[in-house]
């Protein structure tokens, strides 16, 4: 095991992990709960699907412990589509991640949507050959996950809420904190690493490059084409849509519309066209009424 983070980020295995994340840029990754939904997502232009037993809105409604999906479900989705298939494991549950790797999923989401298995430790992701995506609410959290080997960062947002406000908060915060780093002189970076709680080498990387060393996507609360365009304009390179598609009244049309919105995010004429005449979006939650204990974004650190 090397202590040199820079050399690890340049090693072949990490290049392959980050490479797949980069190929997803500009796209939409959709939550699906069966092979039929996966085929609808692929036909609508999804760049990948997230295979899970229940969409976040239902996990939120049902309560109880949410775990990795049944391998039979994941395999049926792998057989149904030709695009990458992702699956979620619980935060810190490396045994679930080992199972997902054995199933040859293309990406593992160490996700706050499931019930955390370890409140102190996230998975040591360098141990795996499959790339990981992890959620973050600020720059320090993003860099800690990359330090553990994540090849892709997404905002946490507030999954299953249909409310974009938290994803916007997280995106703005991460980008503001990155811009601030680029203004500091080198002598200030160790101090900033301390306040961010982030690996010093990665703080130096962001200060020099002005961006994360891996792609940065958005997740949590996307329900409309306009939501996708908003997070793209705020700097998200691609969009995860969880409950927003298959909880709506018109999944196939809405999925295709969100795909086009993610591509033409800065062209309001196209956004108006694709938003036209869609049926009801998922109902959504007013987050001011949601107690802290039910906020998924607070899981993990």
């Amino acid at each position: 095991m090397s202590w040199n983070l820079a050399s690890r980020l340049e090693a072949d295995d990490f290049q392959l992990k980050r490479g797949l994340a980069e190929m997803l840029r500009g796209g939409v990754i959709m939550d699906v709960t069966d092979a039929g939904q996966a085929r609808i997502a692929e036909a609508a232009g999804a760049v990948a699907v997230m295979a899970l037993e229940r969409i976040p809105a239902d996990i939120r409604r049902d309560g109880g412990v949410a775990r990795m999906s049944d391998p039979a479900l994941i395999q049926s989705i792998q057989q149904a589509v030709s695009i990458p298939v992702m699956a979620k494991c619980r935060i810190g549950h490396f045994a679930e991640a080992q199972i997902l790797q054995a199933l040859a999923v293309d990406f593992i989401d160490e996700s706050e949507v499931l019930t955390p298995a370890d409140e102190e430790h996230h998975i040591h992701k360098w141990d795996f050959s499959i790339p990981f995506v992890c959620g973050a609410t600020d720059l320090g959290e993003a860099l800690r996950r990359i330090g553990e080997g994540a090849a892709l960062i997404r905002t946490k947002g507030e999954a299953g809420s249909g409310n974009i406000v938290e994803a916007v908060r997280h995106l703005r915060r991460i980008h503001t904190q990155m811009r601030e780093l680029t203004q500091l002189d080198p002598g200030q970076l160790m101090s900033r690493a301390k306040t961010l709680g982030a690996p010093y080498e990665l703080v130096c990387y962001v200060a020099e490059q002005g961006e994360l060393p891996v792609p940065n996507f958005s997740a949590g609360g996307v329900a409309t084409p306009a939501d996708a365009a908003l997070v793209r304009q705020l700097g998200a390179e691609a969009v995860f849509v969880g409950s927003g598609i298959f909880r709506s009244e018109d999944p196939a049309e809405r999925a295709a519309a969100i795909v086009r919105a993610a591509t033409h995010f800065d062209d309001p004429a196209v956004l108006a066209e694709v938003s036209h005449g869609l049926k009801g979006a998922m109902p959504g939650l007013e987050l001011g009424e949601l107690p802290d204990a039910q906020r998924l974004a607070k899981r993990g650190w």
Partner: peptide
Amino acid sequence: TRNHYGRQRESFIATLEGGSFAGLRAAFIR
């Protein structure tokens, strides 16, 4: 043939052998 080598687990980096780009480190991702 799409995804000829398999899924992401089978992605690899290899040094190209013959031709104009011999020695190039090439990433094959799905």
